[in-house]
Design a binder for these strands. Structure first.
Lengths: 158, 158
DNA sequence: AGACATGGACAACCATGTTGTCTATCGTCG
DNA sequence: CGACGATAGACAACATGGTTGTCCATGTCT
């Protein structure tokens, strides 16, 4: 086989970008503009209990200041709301709004549709083998929330 | 299969990161610290004829100013040299140094070793199928030099 | 010769991260 | 109860790697 290791890496990156760019384009077409993977990561972490800046920073492995900036963006877009924490006067509790949940739901559905399309292109059995081998190679625990920061860049436009 | 489309995307990203982080770590172990994918992209483009800032910017789909900054980094590290262009007084011609070529050669070898390791983990036939299917899904033309900018971020440390 | 295009340098700005500092509040311990 | 250390969040300064805009020197074309 003449393919080099570097080409393999680029194929994997290309696959990721293809899915993410497709999802972002489709989200945009459905009225949600400028959504980036980090927004989804952050909203899910907030919904899962990281409902203040410091905790969100820890979950996403970024500084609390960076998390606060992300929250500010989500707030501007109407994806989250801020309120006082009844139990702790220092904290400001973050909650995901209905709009935020909608974006997460739509994004999930779009990714599933893209996966379906891939499945059709390859055939069910071949695709299942492909996915199983990919999982075997990468391992399910490899991509952790730390990647949220990384995937934040340059995914807005094709 | 219960895997979601988003998980598929994360697996692809995880695979890419796994290879790239491995390559960067191994390059570091061999004495080349802080190499990032964009350095390799840029050096290859320079070697392939994009030997001035404006042309490099065009090849990498970034502004000539951004290309000039990248060249400045490569120059600081001793990977490229700058000289006047005998045919055009405006241009400053960039050439890859012996050190730059060494980094490219080592990087290539390391990626090939990582691919070999994957091949062993899966078995030759299964890996060939996997790679062929990945290529079929992604398409060989998907990842173009435009991605150089994107892969520039946050790959220094695991 | 003169008009226009191009290469490169410089400055200002943007986005997203970092560290450091400060204040308010919490929790614990004497 | 009160004091002290730890934590939450705001604010400022900075790093990195992009962008645009402007400028001058040089090349190219008519």
């Amino acid at each position: 086989m003449s393919r080099s290791g570097a080409e393999l890496a680029l194929l994997l990156l290309g696959g990721y970008r293809s899915l993410v760019d497709g999802a972002i384009a489709e989200l945009s077409a459905r009225g949600h503009h400028g959504v980036r993977p980090v927004h989804d990561f952050a909203m899910r972490a907030i919904a899962a209990g990281a409902d203040n800046a410091s905790e969100l920073g820890r979950r996403l492995s970024v500084s609390k200041q960076a998390a606060a900036k992300t929250i500010a963006v989500l707030f501007e877009r109407g994806y989250v709301e801020r309120g006082p924490d009844p139990d702790d006067g220092r904290r400001k509790r973050i909650t995901v709004t209905a709009l935020g949940w909608e974006v997460m739901r739509e994004g999930e559905a779009i990714f599933d549709e893209l996966r379906q399309a891939w499945q059709h292109r390859l055939g069910a059995r071949e695709f299942a083998e492909f996915e199983a081998r990919l999982a075997a190679l990468v391992g399910d625990a490899t991509v952790r929330p730390e990647s949220a920061g990384w995937v934040a860049h340059e995914l807005d436009e094709g």
